[in-house]
C-alpha cells in the first residue's frame, strides 16, 4: 500500500464540501462542514458517535438534503440532486449498518448495485467475486441469512457494482472481529489501488488512520482537525480522544 503524506495539493479536488449545514428536523447535525477529497486518495472522517460522520456521507449521496452549503463533484454542484441521480455521477455509498437487501440473493444484490448502469455487468461481477471470494460461494443465498462480515462484503461489493469514481464507506468494521476488520481494510486498500477514491467513515480511528492518506476529525457537526493521516495519528488530542490513550 502506497501512502503519500501529501494532500491533493494544487490539483482540483474530486469532491469538495463547502460550509455544509444539515438538519434533522430542528436539530443541526452538520454545522458548516467543509472538506475535500482528491482523486485517488483514501480520506477518512473520524469522530465519535453522533458527531455527524454518517450525516456527511448521506448528504453527499443525496439521501439527506443539506439546508445550505455546496457539494461539488468533479467541479459540478450536486447537492440539489436526488440520490438516484447522484449515483450516476460515480458516487457509490455503502451505508452504515450494511443495509443489504436481505430478502434478495447475493447475486440480486449485486445486480441492484449496478442498477444505474445499463451495460453488461458480467466483468464487474467477476471483479467483485475476485475481491470477495466468499460472495462467489454464496451467490444464490439470501443476503439476510449471511453473517455480518459477509454482509459487509456484500454491501461493499454492491457499491462497487456502480463503477464508482468515489466510494463512500460508512463504518465497514462495525461489529466485525479484529481479523475480519483487518481483511476488510486490506480490501479497501486494494480497491483504492485499482483506482477508486475512497471516503471512509470510521469509529475505529486507529485502523482508519492507518489506511488513509489524509483525515478529518469531526466533533458535534464541525470539523475539528484536518491533516495527513500520519500527523493525526501522532496528534496528542486525537490520541487521547479517539485512539483510546489516556
Amino acid at each position: 500500500m502506497t501512502r503519500t503524506d501529501t494532500p491533493a495539493a494544487g490539483a482540483q479536488p474530486l469532491l469538495e464540501l463547502t460550509d455544509l449545514h444539515v438538519y434533522y428536523g430542528n436539530i443541526e447535525a452538520l454545522k458548516g462542514v467543509s472538506l475535500t477529497v482528491g482523486r485517488g486518495e483514501v480520506v477518512t472522517l473520524i469522530g465519535s458517535n453522533g458527531a455527524g460522520k454518517s450525516t456527511t456521507l448521506r448528504a453527499i449521496s443525496g439521501t439527506h438534503k443539506p439546508r445550505s452549503g455546496t457539494i461539488k463533484f468533479e467541479g459540478r454542484e450536486i447537492q440539489h440532486l436526488p440520490a438516484h441521480e447522484v449515483v450516476t455521477f460515480g458516487i457509490a455509498h455503502s451505508p452504515e449498518g450494511r443495509k443489504v437487501f436481505s430478502r434478495m440473493t447475493v447475486f440480486e444484490n449485486l445486480q441492484m448495485g449496478a442498477f444505474s448502469r445499463r451495460e453488461k455487468i458480467d466483468d464487474d461481477i467477476t471483479r467483485v467475486f475476485d475481491l470477495f471470494p466468499r460472495l462467489r460461494e454464496r451467490r444464490s443465498q439470501k443476503a439476510g441469512t449471511m453473517s455480518g462480515g459477509e454482509q459487509q462484503m456484500l454491501a461493499m461489493g454492491r457499491a462497487l457494482m456502480a463503477h464508482p469514481t468515489i466510494l463512500l464507506l460508512d463504518e465497514p468494521s462495525m461489529g466485525l472481529s479484529p481479523i475480519l476488520t483487518e481483511q476488510i481494510f486490506k480490501i479497501i486498500a486494494e480497491i483504492n489501488e485499482q483506482g477508486t477514491t475512497v471516503l471512509l467513515v470510521e469509529q475505529n480511528a486507529l485502523m482508519a488512520l492507518h489506511a488513509a492518506h489524509r483525515g478529518y476529525v469531526i466533533q458535534t457537526g464541525k470539523i475539528l482537525l484536518a491533516d495527513t493521516a500520519a500527523n493525526l495519528a501522532a496528534n496528542e488530542q486525537v490520541r487521547q480522544a479517539y485512539l483510546g490513550e489516556i
Partner: peptide
C-alpha cells in the same frame, strides 16, 4: 429489472435510491 427494483424499494427506500432507483 423493474421487478427487482420493486422488491428493493419494498425493503429499503433510501438504499434503493442509493442504487439509482427512482423510488
Amino acid at each position: 429489472r423493474t421487478g427487482r427494483a420493486m422488491r428493493a424499494v419494498s425493503e429499503d427506500k433510501d438504499v434503493a435510491a442509493m442504487m439509482g432507483i427512482n423510488v
